[in-house]
Design a protein around this nucleic acid. Structure first.
Length: 300
DNA sequence: ATTCCTACCGACTGCTGTCT
DNA sequence: AGACAGCAGTCGGTAGGAAT
């Protein structure tokens, strides 16, 4: 490997192009003396005078003339590597996007999200990885493009995030549930049993959403724990169990059930979109995140 | 035609200040 | 301390005009 400050490569290119130290200095935005010093350093590194005086002007040495086309080509390639990414051609974009989200999101908003994406990019595909699948470091390793999650202490600090929406909790029962014959009061709710949400991925623990200890109301522990909101709703539909789920997140899933406002204060959930800083400036990833944001905020 | 002088241009370098 | 850049001065080459 040539022991050379690669900044000198740019200087060399200008010098060989201009064959004139003053013009090269002007082009580089530096003083003539600085350019002259740069030429001196290049002469030492490359062991060739590169530019020599010919009367009043400077001319390239045979070595300088021979390397000039390759140096110019190299600089053009470097500029190509670091230039600002072009605006992507979404019509031609043929890419699969992988989003990690709960099964509830997939069932509730997956179709809407794909439709929104295909408005701009007809050839893209969408893969929604459920929370149950083990993708612990998926964002970091580039296996995931984004994740929808409730930020907790276990969320990796380096991840970028944006709040999608704050969701209130609602109760859900089947339309044949005895509660349908009663008014929804704390006392009546205490006669029935609850389904809890329990996601115990490695290092992750979300408190069952039916836990109401914070309100000072004693509720029996959940008799069943499932890993997602959609499963809780499905079980509530077939039983007398009460599910407590986030309202907006499960809006479509609850259409055939009876939903009710909780008669006690229950902490809502803040759903955020997470992505790795690596993709923060990527125009395609930015667009993908914007699609998610629009669908979650109902901008369609 | 040749020589000398002067002005101008371009490159180089010593000194100095700044930054890491 | 070392690397780097700017300022100012120096040096060498060229061009043009005047004198010879």
């Amino acid at each position: 490997m040539l022991n050379m400050d690669l900044n000198l490569l740019v200087t060399l290119n200008v010098l060989l192009t201009e064959a004139n130290i003053t013009r090269a200095a002007q082009k580089q935005g530096m003083s003539v003396s600085a350019m002259s010093r740069a030429l001196t350093r290049l002469r030492v590194v490359l062991n060739d005078p590169l530019l020599v005086k010919s009367g009043r002007f400077m001319v390239l040495t045979p070595y300088a003339a021979s390397v000039r086309p390759r140096v110019t080509q190299l600089i053009e390639q470097i500029e190509q590597v670091f230039k600002t990414p072009d605006v992507p051609d979404f019509i031609q974009l043929n890419q699969q996007f992988t989003l990690r989200a709960s099964a509830g999101f997939a069932e509730n908003s997956g179709a809407l999200l794909l439709a929104r994406m295909r408005q701009d990019a007809p050839a893209v595909t969408l893969r929604i990885i459920s929370k149950e699948e083990k993708y612990g470091r998926g964002l970091k390793e580039g296996k995931l493009d984004a994740e929808i999650a409730v930020i907790s202490n276990n969320t990796e600090q380096e991840m970028k995030s944006r709040l999608l929406f704050s969701d209130k909790m609602v109760g859900v029962v089947s339309k044949t549930h005895p509660l349908m014959q009663l008014s929804v009061t704390t006392e009546n709710l205490q006669q029935y049993e609850f389904i809890g949400i329990d996601r115990r991925a490695p290092g992750e623990r979300i408190q069952p959403v039916c836990c109401m200890s914070g309100s000072g109301i004693a509720i029996k522990p959940a008799v069943m724990l499932v890993s997602g909101f959609s499963a809780a709703i499905a079980i509530a539909a077939m039983s007398d169990l009460i599910a407590v789920v986030p309202a907006q997140f499960t809006a479509n899933l609850r259409k055939s059930l009876f939903s009710f406002r909780l008669p006690f204060p229950a902490e809502g959930l803040n759903f955020s979109l997470l992505w790795h800083p690596r993709t923060d400036n990527d125009p395609v990833q930015k667009w993908f995140r914007e699609c998610i944001l629009q669908v979650c905020r109902g901008d369609e």
